[in-house]
């Protein structure tokens, strides 16, 4: 079992439970979301995505390394977001979409999966969207939503989970007094951290962040960046970003895309300092964006 915080003090008022102060496994063995031990690996092979007549992603081949921050960079409209949405099959909801090739999550192809497999896949792939999107319910219910959807009804357990992940997203101290107020009353930066907590609460393996900071003020985006750096011990993070500087700050691994193709991929150091491709060089020097 992996825990972000080894000891959780439980949020029960008054009587301290017998377990207080001890190391409480966040999820008991009967918990549905037991995270598999070891590595989680995502490999993309010959991926092609068409939307109606348009060829959005062309022959993508790449590997997303485990427990690292992978930044996907490239100019607008190059297919970065579509790539992310292919990873959790959200691309299915786009009209007229055709996907071919293979996306292997721990050796299992997710392109052809259906029904329960997709639901589990989406749980494993926490998506943070560009604009924070709190659900129309209270702060507590927002974080608990994912767990409830997957059948966790136990109130104590839910409380534990909500607190744990609000702490993980660095939001607990700010909202612990008003867990029952509508989530839309939070500031936009807080909303984004709430969305992060919400995604973490279903114990994903990956965090897919689609320009997660572009709608935020500089301070909030810095908070999110720092959170990501902290979270990468436990999660593999794929970040689509528009700002090169952000990629420079946080990336361990970089994928550069242009017009639906992967131009270059490699460790951040190598891509930023010694780009092999002419296009990458041009993009990094700011000739186009």
């Amino acid at each position: 079992m992996k825990h972000l915080f080894p000891a959780i003090s439980l949020p029960f008022e008054g009587r301290r439970p017998a377990t207080a102060g001890k190391v409480i496994p966040l999820f008991r063995p009967d918990h549905k979301f037991e995270r598999g031990e070891g590595e989680s690996e995502l490999v993309v092979e010959n991926l092609n995505v068409h939307i109606k007549q348009q060829h959005i992603l062309k022959e993508i081949n790449l590997t997303i390394p485990d427990k690292k921050i992978t930044c996907v960079i490239g100019p607008s409209g190059c297919g970065k977001s579509t790539l992310l949405k292919t990873f959790n099959r959200l691309v299915d909801s786009v009209e007229g979409v055709r996907v071919s090739g293979r996306v292997l999550l721990n050796g299992e192809d997710i392109v052809g999966s259906g029904g329960m497999e997709i639901i589990n896949l989406r749980r494993k792939m926490g998506l943070i969207s560009q604009k924070p999107c709190p659900l129309p319910m209270s702060i507590f219910d927002n974080v608990a939503y994912g767990c409830r959807v997957h059948g966790i009804r136990n109130w104590r357990k839910l409380r534990m989970i909500v607190r744990h992940y609000l702490e993980a997203a660095g939001l607990w101290e700010e909202v612990k007094e008003r867990l029952n107020t509508p989530a839309t009353r939070l500031s936009i930066g807080q909303q984004q951290r709430l969305c992060l907590a919400r995604s973490l609460a279903v114990e994903p393996h990956f965090i897919l962040a689609d320009e997660a900071t572009s709608a935020l003020d500089p301070i909030s985006s810095k908070t999110i960046e720092e959170l990501f750096i902290k979270l990468k011990q436990h999660y593999s993070i794929v970040m689509v970003t528009h700002t090169l500087r952000q990629a420079l700050r946080v990336a361990d691994h970089v994928i550069f895309m242009y017009l639906g193709q992967v131009i270059e991929t490699g460790p951040a150091e190598q891509v930023f300092n010694h780009p092999a491709d002419k296009l990458t060089q041009k993009y990094l020097s700011g000739s186009f964006s």
Partner: peptide
């Protein structure tokens, strides 16, 4: 807004759960 549906679905909710609770 479509983003609300996407947020719910990407947590692993089914369409019915999304419709009902979101």
């Amino acid at each position: 807004p479509g983003e609300l549906r996407e947020a719910s679905i990407s947590l692993g909710a089914t369409r019915w759960q999304t419709t009902k609770s979101v």
